[in-house]
Design a protein around this nucleic acid. Structure first.
Lengths: 246, 246
DNA sequence: GGTCATTTTTGACGGCTTGTCAAAAATGTC
DNA sequence: GACATTTTTGACAAGCCGTCAAAAATGACC
């Protein structure tokens, strides 16, 4: 039997099946939460036996973790592109903020899945490999943001207090966006609390946080609408078109 | 049979048992996550039959929701006390920040439980009563914070941009603290990412956010150590002693 | 004390889940 | 076509949730 690429037909078949499993698993989680993810039902729906499914993933948690890895990888890609935006450091950081927002709007399923895993007890049963991948993604994201912040300091636009490293500010932005998105996803009555456009509010709060460190140019010194326009057209033209449709 | 208070002996017994169930359930969740919470094992450990447990809570989710209600009530209490701190509005807000931090440090189990419920699909199966209680707690917390912010605006210390209500700022603070705590609880390698003292970092970021809106007095104009000292001794003397011991 | 309606408790049960593993089927090589 | 290897299968053990008829405890009344 001839080789095509480096994989046999069988191996390709198996890879394809793994994709189908993950696809279905994500739909299950998004539809009915982690509780709704059932290995039995995956097997039934895909018309394989349970044993076959367990050949791919040694347990339920492993399936979830694989989904999370996909999600983190995807976001990391958006961050990487955003960080390459041509502009002053603070503007590049805004671009990363747009990336985070796009991730949430475009792939809510991915965010949902990430949200689920932030209960340890799930992580504990997963393989070292996937766990270290997760840590690596987290570290990379952090590094991208901290890098831009360092650029800001280097360019003289920003001066951070003693004992408050770039990572600390990166953590603050991370906390706002992750926390904000989490609350959005889990507190359906936000509008009743007076928050009509949570994503815009998150963006404004991030801006205020940066203003708090007097990072130049201040948000008031920037034409926000114009900047967003530039970011979208230069970095995320395709994604934004997609987001518009929803 | 005489009455004592307004409850019969039996009714008191039942109430006590409910307490024990919740206590045990919390320990299970904290120890092994939501997945580790088992009605069967509760019944076994408490030496009652399952039916009896189900007399108290109609399903697993209801148990979890009861725990969350306890937690939210507790935090709301801390917030209420903090908001009564005597000082300028911005200082009162710092007091609320201390309350949030204390809640996290003193009752990590409660936070953990709250964290678990922020995956919907759990909420869906719970009773209306408990769900509305949760919403009410959330609304009260929001109202307390927004109230202090309004005081800041009224006193002239703070000027918010058009179309950015007090609730929006409250949401920002909520997002930072909830997001920060969530990340802390689920990302054990924070130190590797350069965050040694996450709680202090959260506090600093909150301060920066307020500085971003130029809320007077700015954090640089305040003797932070002294202010914290005052808050602790005036509002949370007991709690702080407890926190110290850990 | 004894009777009896009401409340409370019990645990076997059905139906679902995860994860295992020996046996069966498919595959590929010679 | 025979044989070694890989892949798939599905019955199985063990665990879970939630139900419900039957059993036990309670308490009011005589």
């Amino acid at each position: 039997m001839g080789m095509q690429g480096t994989l046999t037909r069988k191996q390709r078949e198996i890879q394809e099946r793994e994709g189908k499993i993950l696809e279905l698993a994500r739909a299950m989680i998004v539809g009915q939460g982690y509780h709704g993810l059932s290995m039995d039902r995956i097997a039934e729906a895909l018309e394989y036996s349970k044993g076959t499914i367990y050949q791919h993933f040694s347990c339920k948690e492993e399936v979830l973790m694989a989904l999370v890895n996909q999600a983190l990888e995807r976001r990391l890609g958006l961050f990487r592109r955003a960080a390459m935006f041509r502009g002053r450091p603070r503007e590049r950081l805004v671009a990363i903020g747009v990336a985070a927002e796009l991730f949430f709007r475009l792939y809510p399923d991915h965010f949902r899945v990430e949200h689920v895993i932030r209960l340890s007890s799930v992580q504990e049963k997963t393989s070292d490999e996937r766990r270290t991948f997760l840590e690596a993604c987290e570290a990379s994201c952090m590094e991208i943001v901290a890098g831009v912040i360092r650029d800001g300091v280097a360019s003289g636009d920003l001066k951070l207090p003693q004992s408050f490293g770039p990572e600390c500010l990166a953590f603050g932005l991370w906390a706002i966006t992750f926390g904000g998105n989490s609350i959005m996803a889990s507190s359906p009555s936000l509008a009743k609390l007076g928050i009509q456009q949570p994503l815009e509010v998150i963006r404004a709060n991030c801006n205020a946080l940066l203003d708090g460190f007097a990072w130049r140019p201040l948000s008031s010194e920037i034409d926000q609408a114009k900047l967003l326009e530039r970011i979208v057209t230069e970095v995320f033209p395709v994604e934004m078109a997609q987001a518009q449709l929803e």
